[in-house]
Nucleic acid binder design. Sequence first.
RNA 1: AGGCACGUAGCUCAGUGGGAGAGCGCCGCCUUGACACGGCGGAGGUCGGCGGUUCAAUCCCGCCCGUGCCUACCA
Length: 885
Amino acid sequence: MGAETRRFLCIDPKAIPKHFAAAEAERRWDAEWEKQGTYHYDPSRPRSETFVVDTPPPTVSGALHIGHIFSYTHTDVLVRYKRMRGFNVFYPMGWDDNGVPTERRVQNYYHVRCDPAADYDSSLQLEPATAKRRKDRPQIVSRQNFIELCHAVTREDEKAFKELWRRVGLSVDWREEYTTVDDRSRKLAQLSFRDLFEKGHVYTAHAPFMWDVDFQMALAQADVVDREQAGAFHQIEFGVEGSDRRFTISTTRPELLPACVGVTAHPDDERYRDLFGKRAITPLFRTPVPIFPSEMADPDKGTGVLMVCTFGDATDIEWWREQGLALRQLIGRTGRLSPVEFGSDAFPSLDAESANRYYADISNKTVSQARKRIVELLRDPAGSATGGGPPLQSEPEAIRHTVKYYERGDRPLEYVPTRQWFVRLLDKKAELLAKGDEVQWHPDFMRARFRDWTENLQLDWCISRQRYFGVSIPVWYPLDGDGKPDYANPIVAEADEMPVDPIAEAPRGADESQRDRPGGFTGEADVFDTWFTSSLTPQIGSHWRLDPARHEKLFPADVRPQAHEIIRTWAFYTIAKALLHEGSIPWKHVVVSGWVLDPDRKKMSKSVGNVVTPMPLLEKYTADGARYWSASARLGTDTALDEKMFKVGKRLATKIYNAGKFVLSQTTERSEIEPLHSELDRAFAAKLSRLVTRATEAFEELDHAQALAETESFFWNHFTDTFIELAKNRARSESDPTGRGSAVAALRLGLDVLLRLFAPFQPYITEEVWSWAFARETEQPSIHRAPWPGVADFQHIPAPGDEGSFDLAAACWTAINKAKADAEVSMGREVESLTVGATAATLKRLAAVRDDVFAGARVRAHQLESRADLEDGAFEISDAVYAER
RNA sequence: AGGCACGUAGCUCAGUGGGAGAGCGCCGCCUUGACACGGCGGAGGUCGGCGGUUCAAUCCCGCCCGUGCCUACCA
């Protein structure tokens, strides 16, 4: 920064406390940054000068987690770099509060359940549930009460998150704070729906779909995970209508036998070819079902012939559709077997009486209870469809198999026919893939996660959820004369009505009195999948559709920080939304942080109980220390939690503090910065300049860890351990004012540049040291708005230095130190005399920096010895005579 | 089952077609005038295994082993 004429301020080291009081400084600077608006976005500056972050809104109802510090620090480090590069940074913060995690937290916290039919109690006051109360049945509350409780809980959670973010020093513009259920987010989500509706990208359908029986809601493919678990193959004998032919199917879901609607085998399977076109008879229930060939049947699996049920898995749905099979929906929304009547049209039976007797044993049972029971029933010879002994042909054969679960659920999914809303995506795979390729992923291999997911997508996006705390689907349905909803002609809310709650508000032009009356309307009770809103974070930040000029400046964003396990959800849906709304990518770069693993390299998770909370670590090692640990990890790389790294980070801050105190307390006789006259100083400046280049290059490649490592290594090895030690004597010299001025100028240049290089990583300590003198000298009150180091910092050096001189001085100094260490004398001990051996060329080059080396090493007298046996640049010290203590 | 990433000193991790590195830990020394929340010096590794390409492989290629993740299969 400094021009030659820059005036400089010295500090009195005695006025600086011996130790850095980090906790106090963190609070002080946080308040100061807020007051100064240090991190404010300036809407008046052009897009070209703006750097836009699409910040991940954390799920606030999860526990605070050390991983939060980790990944958010990565973003903050980049943001601070960009800000110092002169960019007008847009760095908002959102809180993702809607959805299942919050509802579940509220249910547990207050021990309540929502019943939409219950009446609103405006005076409801609840205390957190005690262990005693949890033993009773949960208290039933109305939908509105429940939503209010959700808001209350998330407000508290948001406070805790915000406190953490501020403590760790995220340079967020807190004026740009939002939640995913605030009015603006709700309005934008509903506008998004309306836009998709108008473009024909959404539809509603009644169809069998993945259903969680505990949460009692539909799911999207992205919400589903596979879990391996124990199961068993059951060999069950079927009969064939009008013959004594029999065959054995193999199934893991015997409880679905009453829902059997067909039997199939591979068309080329000789064992079963004779059966195609005939009807099978199920055991116990004696239901005749068609037998048909299908390429999807695997002759090598089980017995090669299988029963098709409504519905055991996704393939059953396909067969059901293709073959036009009957619907015998057995499993209800609660996961229990519904009461059914054999002998009716829907559940035909050749022997209804006995079928109903068997079914009575499993009706109303859960899936797992029913499974146990039906295995017993299948041992009954009377249940045989062939008259040939028990239908169960052998003991169940235990297997391990994978089963689909809701990622937050405890029981396997079922397929239940329900009406849901969908976003049509399957026909847009190619465009989605193209957009994914347009985005730059860091590290690049994360791109494959997106591609894999998109290519394998099998279902359109189910966006309706049967929940309460979320953004309402802004739709009503007209009711016909019989009070039946006309789903084909939904009434979608107008933009200026939004945000709207169709349960509480009537559509435009209708009156509340027409609600749920024949000829009137009914409101959609479902809310959106939380990803439907979360996938709009770039648009929420930019105020899409609400402020087009602002949107123009902030969309697409520059960078999206992204956890890799939610590429298939958050990243995927965000890309999809930007494509469907504007044919655009949502952001230019995706940066993916790794995971924090526990010291045993296990992923931290609540269920394992190895989650580490961040605040104690911040207290112990300071925010700068924690940030150092975070920033040491490269993007995409998982990192074991290692307190040693926190300690090292704290130590770095301490060293910066002490080095700053020392450098800034050096005085000269003049009040202006001198040019760098001495060779050592110029050599140091040259080395420093190259560091700036390397650190800058690393940042441009989004490799913050490399930038930190380079800077840190330079700081310790070249600045504090070498340059300060060699230049400090000259900086205090009474007899060499020119050399002294040069030394002080070089020390200050080093500190100034290094502070700024460290500022993105350790914002507190660098701001503290900056404030002592540089803030006033440069009239830049915050280092975080000071320019990133560059050529301007090195312009006032009269002649370019030679890094080689610096390395030579360092090598000679190290050689003398080693001689002292070998002699077991203190580094501070004076040396009466010694002999320096090196090649003639080396000795010649050493001449320019020799005085600084010998002053630093406290050598009073020396001899030089030309040694041809040494390598160039190597030194050997001999004949050392140490002074008395 | 396929894909991706990883495997380097006791630990946490850099790294490169030619010399094997850092920090922590460990050992020894030093209370030196910025800093003992410090400094100096040192020990410590067949770079997961086996093959191949190359004058030369920790690095490039193939196979294998191990770890993690993603995706798929799911009768």
